[in-house]
Structures are given as structure tokens and as C-alpha cells.
Design a protein around this nucleic acid. Structure first.
Lengths: 149, 149
DNA sequence: TATTGTTATACTCTATAACTATA
DNA sequence: TATAGTTATAGAGTATAACAATA
């Protein structure tokens, strides 16, 4: 104890502390950084992981459809699928219905890799979720899903 | 009813739907876009708003201290404070204690502008929070604050 | 005409490293 | 030596506009 009223470097956050937008940004940054630490050696970013999951769950989808599902522009899919192809996780197959588009599929290696990847991602999510009490994760997911668009 | 089992274009999100990181990212994006729509005409981004609030609540803080409070690098402060200075919202005053650093203060115009800005930001947060039931916002803020670092 | 994948481009955000002037 | 502000730079991430091939 030094008898002072408190450290002089204590900072007031004002309205920022009551703003959902700010809290969401900080929390999301924590999850993003945690994900990167966990998976950077595999070459998979959060964004690439999203593409991988959608392709895994919906085989044969076009790039544009994946982009729409994830809420971003189809032009962003090109580099993403390029990288996933170089990692031998995804392959572009010419669509038989529409010769303009590709159908996306996980490669054999991608299928095996997927299980390992999801385990690792889940493990690190679980570690962060140790900060939650029972039932809070489900509650959070439900509430956040209302802000998905 | 067409007798089918459902639309063929219904997309499965797999584990993504149960991942807090993904839900946080989508929700945060909604808030970010909403903020930008509400405040782009004022030239204030979510990041600049954060700097403004910290400077307002803690007059005389150095750039480095503001950066630490917001969790980003001090090099990012330069352009941020430059822009806020051009908007006549913030001023750099030479610190009397340490000639290496500046003390940041809101300008007179910044003080007036701040109230108007906070009102507008709060209004648009409130609009998004119409999706929440009573008590859920406070609950969200409390839970999310645990992921602030 | 409209759409798919693509390219070029640009803008934001963010981080690292090195410089300078102070401490 | 360590730190504050700065600069240069680079890497993601994201979006727009335009083009060729195809619908």
C-alpha cells in the first residue's frame, strides 16, 4: 500500500464500455488472435477456415455461392480458393451444368485434414470458453446469431 | 407447398454455427457497417471514435497511452490523431513534463461535436439492439468484457 | 441481358522495424 | 540504455469496376 487513491494510469473508457460494437470488436479480436496462434502453422486463417467448412458441408457449391454464404464478395473467393488449392485441401471441378462456374470439393487430403483442423480449432475455442459459465456459450451463440446480417 | 424436402440452395454451416469466433465476427461486422453508415458523413470510423472517447475521458493522455488502452500499436495512432486534428476534434499539445510526447485534448469544437456524435452512435446502437430482449444487452456486455484481452 | 470467375485496383486496418529527439 | 512520436513498409482483409466466356 502506498496510501494513494489509486494508480494515476487508470484509464476511463466512458461510453465505450457500454457499447456493444466496441465489446464485440475486442472479443472478436481475441478469438481471431487465438485462432491464428493455433492454426498459423497449418496455413489456415479464420477466413479460409470458413470457406473450408462451407465447402465440406455443401460439396459442389460454386465460388459465388460460398461467398454469399459467408457474406463477402465473390472476388475475394479467388485468392482464398487458390490458397486452399495450393494446400491441397480443396479442388475446383468444372461444373457440368454451367460451364462458367466451378464446383468446389474437398480433396482426399482435405477430408482427413478437416477433422484434425476442426479438433484443433475446437480445442482453442474451448480454452477461451473456460471464461464462460455453463449455458453461457449457447446463450451467446443464440443472441449473436440475431446480428448475423 | 411444393412437396419437396426444401430448397436445394439451403446451405449448411456445420461447425461454423456453433463457433463463437465466427458468430462474433459476423455480429461485429454488422455493428461496424451500421456504424459506418451512421457516421461516414462525419468522417468518423469506429476506430477514430475509440480514440476520441479515450481522449475525451482522459484529457492529457499521450498517444502511446491511448494506443495501449485500445489494444493496438502506437504507430497506428499517428494517422488517427492526424485525421482527428484535421477534423478539428483533437489537438496535440506539447507535454511540459516530457518533451518527447504530446498531450491529447479535445478542441472546443471537439467537445460540442462529441455530444452530437455520441447521440448518433447511441441511436444506431439502440436500433440494432431492438433485436435484444430486456436485460440481454447488459448480459452481453458483461460476458464479452471477459474476452477483452 | 445477366451471371461466373477473374483481374486490376484501392482502401482500411494492423503490425514491424528503424530513425530522431529526448529521457 | 530506454522511450515517444514518426516514417516506411508490408501484410491481411475487403470492396468496386471491368473483362471474357457462357448462360
Amino acid at each position: 500500500m502506498d496510501g494513494s487513491t489509486g494508480p494515476a494510469d487508470e484509464i476511463s473508457f466512458g461510453v465505450l464500455g457500454e457499447m456493444l460494437g466496441y465489446r464485440l470488436r475486442r472479443a472478436q479480436l481475441t478469438f481471431f488472435n487465438n485462432f491464428s496462434t493455433a492454426c498459423s502453422d497449418l496455413g489456415v486463417s479464420p477466413g479460409l477456415f470458413g470457406v473450408l467448412v462451407i465447402a465440406k458441408e455443401n460439396p459442389g457449391l460454386t465460388q459465388t455461392a460460398v461467398a454469399q454464404a459467408l457474406g463477402n464478395d465473390r472476388s475475394a473467393m479467388v485468392a482464398a480458393v487458390d490458397r486452399l488449392e495450393k494446400l491441397d485441401l480443396i479442388e475446383r471441378r468444372p461444373s457440368k451444368k454451367d460451364r462458367r462456374s466451378y464446383a468446389l470439393y474437398l480433396t482426399d487430403h482435405g477430408q482427413k485434414f478437416y477433422k484434425e483442423l476442426v479438433d484443433r480449432v475446437a480445442a482453442h475455442e474451448d480454452k477461451l470458453c473456460e471464461r464462460l459459465k455453463p449455458g453461457e456459450k449457447e446463450l451467446l451463440l443464440e443472441i449473436l446469431s440475431r446480428f448475423a446480417s
